[in-house]
Design a protein around this nucleic acid. Structure first.
Lengths: 244, 244
DNA sequence: ACATTAATAATGTATAGACATAAAAGGGAT
DNA sequence: ATCCCTTTTATGTCTATACATTATTAATGT
C-alpha cells in the first residue's frame, strides 16, 4: 500500500477514476497527453503494473488511446455509444410496481420458407415454433409480441408450457448466453392496433430482436426472432452513457 | 512466453476468448463453475496474474462472477444490455453514400422557465440557445432536430455559425466528453410532419438526448437537450450485443 | 543530402512472490 | 443443536523485475 492511499478503494481504481474525472470535466481535452506511466508511478507512489491496470481499463472504455513510444492521449469522441438496457417485459412491469399479466394468443409449428418474415437465415423447411402473445400491466395492454423459435436449436421449446410462462422468460432461463441484434423503429399500429386497444394509425415503437447461439467453431445457430410492439406513448427505452 | 503459446495473440486474451467461447456456445451454462486460478495456471502454463487478467476482463463484461473462497461461476443473464450506436446524423448519411445537406430553420435565445419542455433542470432565467434545423439525405428530409444549448456551459455557442455547421457536429468538436441520457420513443409526426414531408399521423421515431458535463467535484452541468424526429420507415437504430 | 542503421523512450506482456480479504468449512465448548 | 473461534481455500491487490514491441529520434556511411 502506498502513502497516497486514503480510503478502501483499490489504488488502480482510484487512479482510473481521477483520470476519468479530468477527462469528463474537460480539464483534459481530446488529444491532450496523459502523463507517462513512470510519472504516474511517482505521483501515486506505486508500481508500473498498477498504473498500467488503470490505463488499460480506460483504453477498454474508449476514453484514451495509447501508442508505443508516443504516449497516451485522450480519445476524440466520434459516435454516441450508449449502454441500452433492453428490458425483459415482465421485469419491466413488475419493476414499476404494476401487476403483470400474460396471454398466449396463438401457437403453431410452421416451416421456414425463403420469403419469410423470419430473417433467421434458416434452410427452407426448418421447423419453427410460432407464438403470438400479449403482455398487460394492470390489465392494460402493454406490448404485443410475435415470436419464432428455431426448434432445431431449442427442441425443448416444443413441449414448454407457453400458456403460463412468457417465451422470453422461458428462453432466458433455458438458453444460456447468446448474441443478439436489436432493431428499433417506429411504425403505425396497423392491424395489431386492436390487440393493444389502439387506432390503426397510432404510432408504436417496434423492437425486433434476433438472437443466435455461438457454435463450437462454426458460425452462430439462430435461436429466436421476436417482434415486440409497444404503444408509442406508454413506453420508452432509456440508454445512458458516459462518453461523447 | 509459455509453451502453450501458438500465435501472435497475447495469452491472457486467448484464455479469455476460450472461456468466453465455452460460455457462448453453451458448454458452460449459467451457474457452472469455472476452474480455479491455479488449475488454469497449470493448464496454460502461465502465472496467476495472467489468468487473473483474463478472468477480470470477463467479470467486467458481465459473463462471470467471482466470490472469494467460493470460486468463479458463469453469470445468470438477466437483462438484455446492448451497445447502441447513436449516430451523428451527418456521419450516418454520408456513411450510406448519400449526399448530406443541412438547413437551419430557426435560431433564438430564450430564457429557461419552470414549466419548460427543456428538462435540463436549470434555474429559471438561464439563457438558452434554441435551434431548429433539418437534415436531408439526397435532398430528402431525413430528420428534424430541435435543440437547446445551455449558454452558461457553452458560451462560445452564442457566436457559432449554425447556419452552415450542424449543432451536433459543432458540439462534438467543441465540447469534449460528457455524459448522456437517451430516450427513444415513437410518436406521430404531428405538426412537424410538414417539414419531413409526412402526414400528421405518420409514425416517427423520436430520439431525445440530454447531455451534461461532469463538474470538478459537484454534480454535472447540463450542456444540451436535443429532440430528433425520424420518419419511422426510413431509419432504425441497431444495437448489437453479446449477452443474454 | 539521403538512405540506412542504431539508440531510445514509451507501451505491452508476463513472471514469481507477497500479503490482504472474504467466505466457507470444521471443531469445540456450552 | 447453537454459537464462537480457527483453519482453509480462493480471489483481490500490489510489487519489482524482465523482456518484447514499436515508433521516434539520433547517428552513421555513402
Amino acid at each position: 500500500m502506498s502513502l497516497a492511499e486514503s480510503g478502501t478503494v483499490p489504488l488502480h481504481q482510484r487512479i482510473r477514476a481521477e483520470i476519468e474525472g479530468m477527462i469528463l470535466s474537460g480539464q483534459l481535452r481530446p488529444g491532450d497527453r496523459i502523463p507517462v506511466e513512470h510519472e504516474l508511478m511517482a505521483r501515486y507512489g506505486c508500481a508500473r503494473m498498477t498504473v498500467n491496470k488503470a490505463l488499460s481499463a480506460l483504453v477498454e472504455a474508449g476514453l484514451i488511446e495509447r501508442r508505443k513510444r508516443a504516449g497516451t492521449f485522450v480519445s476524440r469522441p466520434q459516435i454516441h455509444m450508449a449502454a441500452l438496457a433492453i428490458p425483459d417485459i415482465k421485469a419491466e412491469i413488475t419493476g414499476r410496481g404494476q401487476v403483470y399479466r400474460y396471454e398466449l394468443l396463438s401457437r403453431g409449428i410452421i416451416a421456414a420458407t425463403d420469403g419469410d418474415p423470419v430473417r433467421l437465415g434458416l434452410p427452407p423447411g426448418s421447423r419453427l415454433l410460432h407464438l403470438t402473445c400479449r403482455h398487460l400491466a394492470d390489465n392494460v395492454p402493454f406490448a404485443l409480441e410475435e415470436r419464432w423459435i428455431n426448434l432445431a436449436a431449442v427442441p425443448e421449446a416444443a413441449t414448454a408450457d407457453f400458456a403460463t410462462v412468457p417465451p422470453g422468460s422461458w428462453l432466458l432461463a433455458h438458453v444460456p448466453w447468446h448474441e443478439a441484434e436489436h432493431r428499433i423503429k417506429a411504425a403505425a399500429a396497423g392491424p395489431h392496433g386492436a390487440a393493444l386497444a389502439l387506432a390503426e394509425q397510432s404510432p408504436c415503437l417496434v423492437l425486433e430482436r434476433r438472437t443466435w447461439r455461438q457454435g463450437d467453431g462454426a458460425d452462430g445457430e439462430p435461436v429466436t426472432y421476436v417482434r415486440q410492439v409497444f404503444p408509442g406513448d406508454g413506453f420508452d427505452l432509456i440508454a445512458r452513457f458516459t462518453g461523447s
